[in-house]
Amino acid sequence: MSLTPLHAIFALMSLFTVGGAVGVVLNRNLIYAAMYLVLSLFGIAGLFILLEAPFLAAVQILVYVGAISVLITITVMVTRCVFCKEPPPRQLTLVAVMAALVMVTLGFVIMTRFGGLTPAADVPADSIEQLGVAFVNPQAYLVPFEVASILLLGALIGAIFIARDDLPRDEEAVGGDDHA
């Protein structure tokens, strides 16, 4: 097997992804952790490009690297203590042992048993169009698409309910008592 530039790019992107993830876990400073998360998410976008899925890569950049990381950064900034170091969580050893155990098990299975690796079929030129059609095709992914829509609507209602501060819960709400 000869090394190609693709291998190098893959190695770099994997380094971003895994290194960023490790950085998130190990950093006690929340802002730094958020930045490492951006790096990790960016690495995943790179991996999508290597897999010839440019649409997913674009979504990954727009939604995760763009929107979600901004959201996380803002959330971090309104927490009580941005730059101070959190004390290490309790039961750290136990958690670390459990995590290592899961990682070794999963790693072993994936490394040894991923037997049926076959080269992927060529990516069709109109993959984005096919994806779009599949979302609204009753024979493909219409049901998940619609369930996701309702899920988002529910989450939206919930978010508004939780965020609203002016709950009319004084006089009118009491009035509901006498219906029974």
Binding site: V147, I150, L151, L153, G154, I157, G158, F161, L167, R169, D170, A173, V174, G176, D177, H179, A180
Partner: peptide, 24 residues
């Protein structure tokens, strides 16, 4: 039905969300 007004948390969203989760 009686609990929500008695505890002053009666809002229509309660029933909407309950129906959503039932559909799920």
């Amino acid at each position: 039905l009686d609990f929500l007004p008695r505890h002053k948390i009666e809002r229509g969203e309660y029933y909407i969300l309950l129906l959503f989760t039932t559909g799920g």
